[in-house]
Design a protein around this nucleic acid. Structure first.
Lengths: 230, 230
DNA sequence: TAGATTGTTAATCGATTAACAATC
DNA sequence: TAGATTGTTAATCGATTAACAATC
């Protein structure tokens, strides 16, 4: 992916280092946030930014920003800072925006439908292909342009279309079994919205557990236990 | 809240320490997960559990479990372990399950409606009161039993009903302004589903930013960059 | 060149784990 | 009592921050 070459971007030479150690999950989880801020800068027509300026905007240290970017070989230039467009593109590539991933939603209920209606996939270069459900009154309909298929067609569809990501919005109790099935069909990633913890790493499948309930409870903790203001 | 008293629970004496330092966010964020596992144990009729057993179930170290619980003064008993029911209740209290919080959903679109239809609030002792929207075709209807009111009624409603938590499911661009308004109306917590970062801590309002897009991108990173399996 | 700002090493901080004495 | 397991202190690990030499 990264190589020991020298590229010329905006008339400026840049070095790409050979991929070093694996990057910690702590750093990875910060990348989408950088990506959001960089898109904003880009749409504000800001061409360059220093770690110092970005740190003020994002409320993190400049040190952390430079350390984070350096995990991937360094995207900046001494004395100049970072080229916003270049940095945005690079982080986008890291995050897989250009890797043309495909996705399906398993569970065409309220949450599944809400996701289908949102621009969340399109914005990240992910092709949503279809929804699946076992509810016969949903099967055969379309949700925001995407077909809802019967769950019995899932295996064939996933294998034929080499689906990368499955989004799980089915009732909690069916989730672990469904996750295993999807893993066996060759899914590469699982985006889990149920309160079950789905770990299919033993099949080499990556997963992200959203756990909305945990987020809500964390908020409740903060609301309940906030007394001492500073 | 906690006091230097001695309680008798299930015939066992327990000490409550005076609240010590403030507990780190790292620990807080783990509480909902403990809570989930403990509920499971409870429904499986398991009365007691040791940190060692729980650590195996949850894939964390027993040390971490004991450290975490001890941030709140210790819920266990030497030589015995933890009483599941007691521990579950205690963590629930910490998380505000018994503090009778109220909530509204601002934005009755697909995502707002999906949340209204879910048992996520009821399960955590939160009363969902209503939804708000500016779409006249939604106003006056009911979503899963909850009324949808016009956004113009928001201020009066929040103040009159002393609403604790506002859930923001409106388009991103309106979110910061709405957050400030809600803060000024006296909201205590904000559960934010937009991609905007809403920080109203300057008004003393707590917030949780869900950032589904970030979660999806993190998954994309993992899917795209998984090569080396072990 | 001089100034700016990165890339990177070293120092600090906080979180996790290990160890064990206290005690049920 | 003896055995088990917590509560808690000490050791380790990893992540963050500070500092500065490299360099554009």
């Amino acid at each position: 992916m990264a190589e020991n070459s020298t590229k010329t971007v905006k008339g400026v030479k840049r070095k790409n280092k050979t991929e070093q150690m694996l990057v910690s999950a702590t750093v990875i989880k910060r990348l989408p946030r950088y990506y959001r801020y960089l898109r904003q800068l880009l749409s504000d027509d800001i061409r360059r930014i220093s770690s110092g300026e970005l740190s003020k905007m994002m409320n993190v240290t400049a040190s952390q920003i430079r350390q984070d970017f350096n995990c991937f070989g360094g995207f900046g230039q001494q004395g100049y800072g970072y080229n916003v467009k270049y940095l945005y593109t690079k982080i986008g590539e890291l995050l897989g925006v250009t890797s043309n991933l495909s996705a399906i939603i398993v569970g065409a209920g309220n949450l599944g439908s809400a996701l289908a209606s949102s621009p969340i996939f399109e914005r990240r270069g992910i092709s949503l292909l279809a929804l699946f459900d076992n509810n016969t009154s949903l099967v055969g309909t379309k949700k925001y342009g995407f077909p809802v298929y019967d769950i019995s067609l899932l295996e064939e569809f996933v294998k034929k279309n080499e689906v990368d990501i499955a989004i799980i919005t089915i009732p909690r109790d069916y989730a672990p079994e469904m996750a295993e099935k999807l893993a066996s069909y060759g899914i590469k990633g699982l985006w889990n919205f149920t309160s079950a913890e789905l770990d299919v790493s033993k099949y080499g499948v990556e997963s992200e557990n959203v756990h909305l309930g945990d987020s809500l409870m964390t908020l409740c903790y903060k609301v309940t236990n906030k007394e001492e203001k500073d």
